[in-house]
Design a protein around this nucleic acid. Structure first.
Lengths: 261, 261
DNA sequence: TCTTGCGTTCGAATATGCCGAACGCAAGAC
DNA sequence: GTCTTGCGTTCGGCATATTCGAACGCAAGA
């Protein structure tokens, strides 16, 4: 593990929705490095446009980040088709939909579509992260990943309890994932947020590997009324997406080793 | 300039739409570094999820890139309002619209909206780059930037001639930018692509600084017929966006120094 | 089975990033 | 106006993390 790479990511990770701007001093204090080092580091990153300098010693994320992410998205073939179908669906069903991929034990939300008059938001923007063990898409993604890896990672990272319904026991999770594999889809019964239920289904590439998952997120009362319809709907959508994938479509397989440090 | 940061960006920059996957060997040969060094570098980046390992020594861009870019986008306040207005406009006018910001002398396309039955594509995806001196949004952005910087950079980078109408003379460009400032908007008369015209207008923050630009891209024949309408339309849209910006809305000012190496 | 080509591991040489101190600058106190 | 304070940047010697050639292990193909 190269130390500088580690420091680069530590700096990049500082920037968030709450703190989109950082000065050299703040960053140095937060990270616990001497400010001279941080100054050089940030200046270098800005020179390469990974950061953007706004006034003396103040920085934001730079546009090169955005470009890189677009390259990433454009080369994730499954996303294009998924989006087309999901747009259809949202227009018709008027419910929020998400598309997510698995990265470690975190579900990365790649798309978030909602009917035009915004209702309520679960994950407020595509690109957010949620522990995979509690959400619908997350559990579906976990269900089709090697259990040894998952369990090792979860043991290491812990399983935060977001609501009373969140699964926090490894054995129980294993059984839940087994159920998901049997049925071919998964529920989230207010495990992320009270009053919000969800049904999720896997998207498969041409070889049958699960590469992503989509979901409906619906207020609990409405979900109960029309559970079967939502389930059928999401399954059909996932199948349409899977079937429409180009022959050579490949997932962007996730690294399964554990993180250093 | 920290060397490792430079190497990190060199590696990240390898990944493109044409070559979304790289092996250690290919990367090492392309960059001219020993493969052992590149191997360690890429392994480190993958460990921090800036890259994603797909099989022995093969890598893609990692999802952390995507997350970082979402943070960037969400904290660029002008984008949210711009998108709302642009969606309106596209629905009504049924023409392609772009939103771009300036990064150095390149226009980075942050949004691209098109009416539902896709017509023709100029910039195929948000996040693309085009030399600023030839496109409508590009010229508008240049018009409101310090000329000393622009001209120095353009001299250094050159001014590619995309069509016979592309401006490739510095003095002529300076006069064109002057015209744009006088009028308050700019045209692209088939300077990027023959048969495609464009009218662009600047978006200003509360202090009057130009922070972005939007444009209509329209087939030449249709543009000629309704030039004035398009111009008025885009101006009004730009003003609506500017006016709707939150009080504290700030651009993400671009670094104006030249790049090392 | 042998060969070839790949990615990874290893260890010693050294160039590189690190950090404390000094500097320059600007804002605010007195 | 001057002094003080706090900031970011610059500098240079030191120590250590990075580098790179060589050796290794592995898998695919001859």
């Amino acid at each position: 593990m190269l130390q500088t790479v580690s420091k680069v990511t530590q700096v990049l990770d500082l920037f968030s929705l709450e703190n989109p701007e950082w000065s050299v001093g703040e960053a140095a204090r937060t990270l616990g490095y001497p400010k001279s080092s941080v100054s050089e580091l940030m200046a270098s990153l800005a020179n390469r446009r990974l950061l953007c300098r706004i006034g003396k010693g103040r920085y934001r994320l730079g546009w090169r980040i955005f470009e890189l992410s677009q390259t990433l998205l454009q080369t994730a073939e499954f996303r294009v088709e998924a989006r087309r179908v999901m747009e259809d669906m949202v227009g018709q069903w008027r419910e929020i939909m998400h598309l997510a991929v698995l990265d470690g034990v975190q579900a990365v939300y790649v798309e978030k579509l909602q009917p035009t008059p915004a209702v309520k938001i679960l994950v407020s923007w595509a690109g957010a992260r949620l522990p995979a063990h509690c959400s619908g898409v997350g559990k579906v993604l976990l269900a089709y990943s090697p259990w040894e890896n998952i369990s090792a990672n979860l043991r290491h990272m812990g399983m935060p309890k977001l609501t009373p319904h969140t699964i926090t026991d490894l054995d129980e999770l294993e059984r839940e994932l087994e159920r998901i594999r049997e049925r071919g889809y998964g529920y989230d019964i207010e495990e992320v947020s009270i009053g919000l239920r969800c049904v999720a289904a896997p998207i498969r590439d041409c070889e049958g590997n699960v590469i992503a998952a989509i979901s409906f997120s619906v207020p609990a009362f409405r979900f109960k009324e029309r559970e079967e319809e939502f389930t059928e709907g999401i399954l059909k959508a996932a199948q349409r997406i899977s079937a429409a994938l180009p022959k050579h479509a490949r997932s962007l397989p996730r690294e399964l080793t554990t993180l250093h440090r």
